[in-house]
């Protein structure tokens, strides 16, 4: 893995409360490396601490203890002038765009350059280049109120890229957009990541966002990272309950309600069916394993739900099946042998 663009080293953030009550702990002992050139998604529910974590990268929040290293700088200890220099190397886009309503598209994109003290002769070609990059040539003279949500976020992206940052932070950038526009904005971010080699760190509560563009993912809950790694690995073998609940509905399958309602943890008789989730990953994702299970072991398979999709350009399949309880152990061993992952979800009679 390449050198980390951002490194959280034992980061804790406490918010002191009024006398009498203890501190609120927003983040607790976070260790996380964000690889250079990757798109890393931090996913968590609202209040999980992901927003605080993201804001540590450009010093909008400071750690109570621990270190945040960005492009080799310790952000938490930077003095105001050094912090401003770091911020110019870190672009940020926002859920509600945060565009200046009184400035045109052109002037919004020029703002970070004005702030950085770039002389006006050099601002113009740069802004025009950015406007072209995000496909808003026709809208350059318009004001944010005249733009659609997707167009506003494009302006936000162009503005964030103006000072040639090495890192782009995305704070729920697609959460206020409809699904079509979300896809377009994510595609743009992916292009930028590829073409400019920009490291992207995004926070979201939508697993679909991570699935579509995230090469890496970290799952955060109650101020702690409960699981992290390459997206494909985490998605195909989620270890933590929070990750699984986020994945439900994103990686296609959930146990249908009429089965879930009847499911018990332990089998009640030998005639019960065991509900098993089978995950097909990597080269095995497209193998006809269930057919072989029936042909070679004579185990009948009752398919309850399933889907195959792509995560990070790799196929990923997930099936929920019913197997005779008496043959479950044998069938699972067979499937695991062939590189599939299985998990018992429960039993139905």
């Amino acid at each position: 893995m390449a050198e980390a663009a951002i490194s959280f080293q034992g980061v804790t953030r406490r918010y002191p409360q009024k006398k009498g009550s203890g501190d609120v702990i927003a983040l607790q002992d976070i260790w996380l490396d964000v690889p250079q050139g990757a798109v890393t998604g931090i996913i968590g529910r609202s209040g999980a601490g992901k927003s605080t974590l993201l804001r540590m990268v450009n010093g909008l929040e400071r750690p109570s203890s621990g270190k945040v290293i960005v492009n080799g700088h310790n952000v938490g200890e930077a003095d105001p002038a050094a912090l401003r220099a770091i911020r110019r190397e870190v672009g940020m886009i926002f859920q509600h765009f945060n565009l200046l309503a009184m400035r045109s598209v052109y002037d919004n994109i020029a703002l970070p350059l004005e702030i950085a003290g770039v002389d006006s002769a050099r601002i113009k070609p740069r802004v025009n280049e950015l406007i072209e990059l995000v496909g808003l040539t026709q809208q350059a003279a318009r004001y944010p109120a005249e733009l659609s949500g997707g167009q506003k976020q494009r302006v936000g992206i162009a503005r964030a890229l103006a000072t040639n940052p090495r890192v782009l932070l995305s704070d729920e950038a697609t959460s206020a957009l409809d699904p079509d526009t979300t896809r377009q904005v994510l595609a743009l971010l992916k292009d930028i990541n590829r073409e400019l080699g920009l490291t992207i760190l995004l926070i979201t509560h939508e697993m679909a966002v991570v699935r579509d563009i995230g090469t890496h993912v970290a799952v955060i809950e109650n101020g702690q990272i409960v699981e992290s790694g390459e997206t494909y690995d985490v998605f195909s073998r989620p270890q933590h309950a929070t990750t699984r609940s986020f994945l439900t509905g994103v990686t296609g399958v959930a146990v249908p309600h009429f089965i879930a309602d009847r499911m018990t943890a332990e089998p009640r008789s030998a005639d019960d069916e065991t509900v098993v989730q089978i995950t097909f990953v990597g080269p095995h994702a497209t193998d006809p394993m269930l057919a072989r299970l029936t042909a070679e072991l004579g185990v009948s398979v009752n398919i309850m739900a399933g889907a195959i999709e792509e995560i990070g350009d790799k196929p990923f399949g997930s099936l929920i099946v019913g197997l005779p309880a008496s043959r479950t152990a044998e069938a699972r061993a067979f499937l695991e042998q062939h590189g599939l992952f299985t998990e018992v979800l429960g039993h139905v009679s």
Partner: peptide, 15 residues
């Protein structure tokens, strides 16, 4: 003025 705009400006390194 929306505090988000202040945050955006700070994120750009504005004084």
């Amino acid at each position: 003025v929306d505090s988000g705009l202040i945050e955006a400006a700070r994120s750009m390194g504005a004084t």
